[in-house]
Amino acid sequence: MEIDPFIFRLSIFILSIFVGYYVVWSVTPSLHTPLMSVTNAISSVIIVGAIIAALAGTSDKIFETSNIFGFLAIILAAINIFGGFLVTQRMLQMYKKKKNKK
């Protein structure tokens, strides 16, 4: 019997949880706030689903209910992507080492 593709996805999922576990434990506690904002940004990769939803169907019927939900999701995810990465960048710029003696 052939293996259901779902099982492959489940394997990826579970292995990623383990990867996440070890990677996140190695994050230094002083960067926990940037960690939260960057995880926020990357979880907005859900925009992939939003784009598919927004463009579903033929191009002349672009504003059906499901498309509108797609477009709304695009806005929400885009706020998060730009906001998340930029605020992370802003924070990380502030972490500086002791200045070398002039």
């Binding site: 990826i12 579970i14 990623s16 996440g20 995880t39 979880s43």
Partner: peptide, 9 residues
Amino acid sequence: ALIITGALV
């Protein structure tokens, strides 16, 4: 991409 990210986050 979504599955990996979801698990990481």
